[in-house]
Design a binder for these strands. Structure first.
Length: 314
DNA sequence: CTCATTTGACCCTT
DNA sequence: AAGGGTCAAATGAG
């Protein structure tokens, strides 16, 4: 599949400003009680408007069939061959479709043998288990979790947890969907449910543009094994430093993201500027340290692409 | 009583 | 058809 979406130089500042606006609105969202209905509703409309504007501002590539902008609203207006008649069982179909098109991030979490923990450590969110399956060829079953606030705040986040075959102290955790609950540590209106501990304040969604902008190093590796290193902010006089070339489908990021939401944000950013859809990039967090200290991430894609990323990291 | 987990059945995707 | 993901009734814990 070819994307070839280099985007218009003139659009970059506009898109950048819009994204900053969206990020700021989301910061405000985290400070706002959902119970305060009017401000909450207005803020949602603001975010929605910004995302509409982003959709209009992004590069249009006629070769790309999927133009949906992945956003937190997860209402991806995808219309390639779906058209399912809304007779019955529609909801189920929608859920599956979302599953297929959502970004996915996998991390490995090592559990200290002496800690007595049965599963991976807290990741800052509260989860409710809704299923478990024995997986063919795997020694250990896979657990299925969804965000506790799925019904009350329409939060689409889910995760799967499976103990590694090779190392029983390691759990593979796959996250899908970005949290929309943005729960506050001292939100009295929300009953604490499964999580006995207070929520970790550091796990509030962070904002990648702000967090990684000062020092980001990217290693892009092609399917042929050839790789290039990019640094942001870029070194002067090297315009090639910030051009992502085609055929470089594996990208390693070195930075200090503070939450899993940072990874999702970066995936959104990539998809947005390439005009690709939400499922075109998936991530692997290639470290076995606790989430807040995870230093590396890897972004995977089967696409060939090219774009200039210079204006997004300074 | 309320809410979380377990577990077999069902549905969807490949 | 097989395997994976989700549902929902039954069960358990607090």
């Amino acid at each position: 599949m070819e994307v070839g979406a280099e985007f218009n130089q003139q659009e970059q500042p506009l898109v950048c400003k819009l994204m900053q606006g969206r990020e700021l609105a989301r910061q405000l969202e985290t400070k706002l009680e959902p119970s305060s209905e009017l401000p909450w509703s207005l803020l949602q409309q603001i975010i929605s408007s910004i995302e509409d504007a982003l959709s209009m501002a992004k590069p249009v590539d006629p070769m790309t069939p999927l133009q949906a902008l992945p956003g937190p609203s997860s209402d991806s207006p995808r219309s390639v061959s779906d058209d399912n008649d809304n007779s019955d069982g529609t909801e189920r179909r929608d859920v599956s479709k979302k599953r297929k098109t959502q970004m996915k991030w996998t991390t490995q979490v090592k559990v200290c043998p002496g800690s007595g923990l049965e599963g991976p450590i807290e990741d800052g969110y509260s989860w409710r288990k809704y299923g478990q399956k024995d997986i063919l060829g795997a020694k250990h079953p896979r657990g299925y979790y969804r965000c506790t606030h799925r019904s009350t705040r329409d939060c689409p986040a889910t995760k799967q947890v499976q103990r590694s075959d090779d190392d029983p102290s390691v759990f593979n955790v796959t996250y899908r969907g970005k949290h929309r609950c943005h729960q506050q540590p001292n939100n009295q209106s929300q009953m604490p449910t499964s999580s006995p501990r207070p929520q970790n304040q550091q796990q509030q969604p962070q904002h990648l543009l702000l967090n990684l902008g000062s020092s980001l190093h990217i290693k892009a590796e092609g399917s042929d094994g050839h790789h290039s290193i990019f640094s942001f902010p870029s070194t002067p006089t090297d315009p090639n430093n910030h051009i992502f070339s085609s055929s470089q489908s594996h990208i390693n990021f070195t930075g200090t993201p503070n939450s899993y939401d940072d990874y999702f944000s970066f995936g959104e950013l990539m998809n947005h500027h390439l005009g690709t859809s939400e499922s075109d990039f998936t991530g692997i967090i290639s470290a076995t340290t606790p989430p807040s200290n995870t230093p590396m991430m890897e972004l995977e894609s089967d696409l060939d692409f090219q774009f200039d990323a210079s204006s997004f990291f300074n």
